[in-house]
Design a binder for these strands. Structure first.
Lengths: 250, 250
DNA sequence: CTTGACCTTGACGTTGCGTCAGGGTGGAGG
DNA sequence: CCTCCACCCTGACGCAACGTCAAGGTCAAG
């Protein structure tokens, strides 16, 4: 019954701890942090002990743990190592996802900046193109295991900036092809486009024949791509044009 | 009224698009993707057009946009650049937060691995120590602007691995001090601990006098730290011991 | 006509609180 | 003693993006 030195009401405690009153009441109800309820009228009273526990809660919450998990962990601290490694894996995965999104945004912004691509559709394609690099599952159909290993190696070598730059170049190339659609595929401009195309392809394949073969097989089979990949497709008229241009000068 | 080539029921469409039926119904109800409802019986029918729109939705969702934002964006594509930059900033912030959490976990795991720190309290302290590096607000009281700028510069130079490593060393040092509490502060072991302490401090300050002065002021004033920072505190007996040891051989 | 696969809407659960709404408590001033 | 005002309490709904039943229509085949 020794009255603790400093027992505070919920408002004062909230101010000092930086946690809102609502959150404190929430933690109370769910059994995560139970203040004392000595006073008549049912007032919550928080002391030093509660402050310490709350700080542990805040730390664990900042690691992305759910409140229920924190509750169990505080009940049984022995589970800490497991929790940590589980959480590390989870956060790593989340971070990868975030990085992909950031790369995609960077690429899309790069493509928008020159003002040459107001076309909504193309933006979606750029974004996809990057996302594609991770969704290797459905490419199994077209790439040999060696080719996929090579792709994976190359992907690891690329920085996000390089990926964004390449995506930007593809976007520009598509825009330019679109603008040149009516021209003669053997003409100078079309041939310049074909050259850019070859350069970008070899940037992706790294000169690897295996990869190039898979890429060709894939493009020849566009119509049969799974629905999820439809948006990666090159529009038929663009494809026809660039194929003609590429065949002019092998 | 020209019947579209391939109109699918919701189940088939869900399979092909990789989006669950529940999600499709959700998108329908909230006006994000409205399928046709020609058939009697009120069946939802999805065609090629819906597939394209759904793909755009999926892409934007993968960028972390909320469904309501996507709806507005598809209504008004001109807002795309703004949305992208807003989203980039948001995701960057979220990534920083994630990195901090990951660093904290790495440090905590490193401290746990040697099996020398079963003490729950110390773990919390490590975690805090790292989090501290960002919460510079309350350090304004102790550090001069120049010192804070220097701290910020040094923080940017550090890789997450370096931060984790330093945190691990602090944790080990605290554990060793704890174990040596009863010994003579002038003895060989205590002096070795003092040396490690000095090395770690100078690793943090980078030899900068300004920072060191602020750090000293801070530690001298431990009792007055704001509540949110209480967990960073060095336990009094540890502090007393290490101070004695440090003073032995200046 | 029945069966079974497929479809519909409705409603509650999840997570961590924000935000009222309606109503008690407690100490100070009149 | 009464009143006032600051402070406290307990619900209860809302949000985001669906998961997960539940109860009940629809459709093609046998």
């Amino acid at each position: 019954m020794a009255a603790e030195t400093r027992l505070r009401n919920i408002q004062a405690f909230a101010r000092e701890s930086g946690v809102t009153m609502r959150a404190l009441r929430h933690y109370d109800r769910m059994g995560l942090l139970r203040p004392r309820r000595n006073r008549p009228g049912g007032y919550r009273l928080y002391g030093r002990e509660e402050l310490l526990r709350l700080e542990q809660i805040v730390v664990l919450k900042s690691l992305g743990l759910k409140l229920s998990e924190i509750r169990e962990l505080l009940k049984n601290p022995g589970a800490l190592p497991l929790m940590l490694s589980r959480q590390r894996r989870l956060l790593s995965a989340r971070r990868e996802q975030l990085d992909r999104a950031l790369r995609a945004i960077a690429a899309a912004e790069a493509a928008l900046r020159p003002g040459r691509l107001p076309a909504w559709r193309l933006i979606a394609n750029i974004v996809r193109e990057i996302a594609m690099q991770n969704e290797t599952n459905w490419t199994e159909k077209y790439y040999s295991p060696q080719a996929r290993a090579a792709i994976e190696r190359r992907r690891l070598e690329w920085t996000p900036e390089m990926q964004a730059e390449v995506s930007r170049q593809w976007a520009e190339l598509f825009a330019d092809i679109e603008a040149a659609l009516g021209e003669n595929p053997a003409g100078a401009r079309a041939q310049a486009l074909a050259a850019r195309w070859r350069k970008l392809v070899s940037a992706f394949t790294g000169g690897n024949r295996e990869i190039q073969k898979g890429l060709n097989a894939m493009h020849a089979d566009q119509a049969n791509w799974p629905a999820a990949a439809q948006a990666y497709r090159i529009r038929p008229e663009l494809q026809a044009f660039i194929l003609k241009a590429l065949r002019c000068k092998p």
